[in-house]
């Protein structure tokens, strides 16, 4: 398999600890971002990301390269986040409907500070909408949209079929569009913030 990360993991399996450190350095930021989007909390996400890398460390004795390394790693991360959420029965923060229906503030003189505030507000609204998605829909959307995985890779990470992934993403996007309707209707704020 032409995947340098697979080669690193195999080297680690044979006892080369520095190969593990290289894998950690390569994937750390993305895994932290992924767990943050899955869990909706930075502190919890960092703890979870560390758990994921510890699980990767323990997996060296049983590792067999059956897929791309990223699929393998994100499968660990996805299962870990799903387990954490199931265990804690974390209260999902429902979007503030009233606030979401409030028209986005008109762009004033257009100071840089205004744009930054608007970007922050939109990010929070977006994260609230992401948190309101059912977990598998959220995982599917995050893997394909943010992690750039193909449908096949995402299917491997969540352990569902490719057609199920397509369905999950379509449902996730439809739900996001419903939740973010006021923002999307008034796209000027988004366009300005981008």
């Amino acid at each position: 398999m032409d995947d340098p990360d697979v080669a690193l993991m195999l080297a680690f399996s044979k006892g080369q600890e520095e190969a593990f450190v290289e894998l950690y350095n390569r994937h750390r930021d993305r895994i932290v971002s992924y767990t943050r989007r899955m869990l909706g909390n930075q502190a919890q996400a960092e703890e979870a990301a560390q758990d994921v890398f510890l699980k990767l460390y323990r997996a060296r004795e049983t590792y067999a390269p059956r897929s791309r390394f990223s699929t393998f790693l994100y499968r660990i991360a996805t299962n870990h986040c799903l387990n954490l959420n199931a265990r804690v029965e974390r209260k999902l923060v429902r979007p503030d409907v009233e606030a979401a229906n409030r028209p986005a503030p008109e762009r004033a003189a257009g100071t840089r500070q205004d744009a930054e505030l608007e970007r922050k507000r939109l990010r929070e609204t977006l994260n609230t909408a992401l948190a309101s998605l059912p977990e598998r829909q959220r995982a599917a959307l995050l893997l394909v949209h943010y992690e750039g995985m193909s449908y096949r890779e995402a299917a491997g990470a969540i352990e569902v079929s490719e057609s199920a992934i397509k369905s999950l993403i379509h449902r996730a996007r439809s739900a996001m569009m419903r939740e973010l309707e006021p923002e999307l209707r008034n796209d000027r704020g988004v366009l300005h913030a981008v």
Binding site: D29, V32, E46, L126, L130, E183, D187, V190, L191
Partner: peptide, 16 residues
Amino acid sequence: AAALDRMLALDEPQPP
């Protein structure tokens, strides 16, 4: 849908 893509792009990866 295009506006949703623009909004999704606002959430950039953050280092730990």
